[in-house]
Write a protein that binds this DNA or RNA. Structure first.
Lengths: 163, 163
DNA sequence: TCCAGATGGTTGACGAGTGCAACCAACGAG
DNA sequence: CTCGTTGGTTGCACTCGTCAACCATCTGGA
């Protein structure tokens, strides 16, 4: 497939494709997530869904940590958390180690609803990604992780260079 | 790497990773694009940048076609196009085949500015993705394309089923 | 020929989402 | 104790996308 010429042009094409594909991906995914979120709870805002899954994966955390991991403004996180608390999907308890902070974690209801949707999502992915075998899927997920880590490093370098 | 067990669990993990990685990717990319857009023109809105690159890639098109390809509301496209016209990055000419429609294309200035940034972007990707060799990059871009096409099909099926 | 419906495009209203900055409360090092 | 830092909340501004109403134009059929 590769011509092994390995010149600038090949790379430019690849990166341009990357950029364009990612753009359509973003739009498509936004819709998918909106749907997924509404499955968890009819009134759940899509963006808050990410916070929910993040806490599902990482366990109890303070809001600042979530904001840092998700690279979100702490104000945005604060609002989403409030929203999630209103819906009863999250529990908040004071951090015993720091009087300012509070620890966020899934509520029982939140965990239940999320795992119910986990199952549904697996079915959806199975249906949609049926043509991908396990290795391909794992490879793609791995590439994505690597790409993310690359971007993260680039960001860290940039942040460090900028006082 | 793969255990060849090929059971449900593997797949669930992969899809969950996929979902999470994609979410952080979206947020990161939003920043990158915002930066790229402002390089093209200080007042260029990030979302309009996609329309610009789309026209760069596909040539002259009417707004409705752009909206269809980018899966955007025609109202949104209309606004972005107006914005791009104001900035002088786009040209608009009446469609000779249809009195209602207008054909959009890059203006000379738009093309020049975009290609200037193309070069800059290549440098950026080279710097950031330096650890990826050509085949890996091409493979990743290919996977993304495939994933997009998969999502597109899923959407088409869904739309068809829904009157 | 003329009318009804479809289509291209514009616009206004609205809600989601986010960053920024100001602010308060609590921490921690000097 | 004081000062700078950090966790969190809130108001403001702005981008963005969707929905719906609207006008102009095209198109097929009576």
């Amino acid at each position: 497939m590769s011509t092994r010429t390995s010149d600038r042009t090949d790379r430019t094409t690849a990166t341009r494709t990357l950029e364009r594909e990612l753009s359509t991906l973003i739009r498509r995914l936004k819709r998918v997530v909106a749907e997924r979120a509404s499955e968890v709870h009819p009134d759940l805002q899509p963006a808050a869904y990410w916070i929910l899954t993040h806490l599902e994966h990482h366990g109890s955390q303070r809001a600042a940590t979530v904001a840092d991991h998700l690279e979100l403004d702490k104000g945005a996180v604060s609002r989403h958390v409030q929203h999630l608390l209103d819906l009863g999907l999250l529990d908040r308890s004071p951090d015993p180690d720091d009087g300012r902070a509070t620890l966020l974690s899934l509520s029982e209801d939140g965990a239940r609803r999320l795992s119910a949707v986990d199952e549904h999502r697996r079915q959806w992915f199975d249906e949609v990604l049926g043509s991908w075998d396990d290795d391909e899927l794992a490879g793609f997920a791995g590439d994505l992780s690597r790409y993310n880590r690359t971007l993260e490093q680039a960001r860290a370098v940039r942040d460090a260079a900028r006082p």
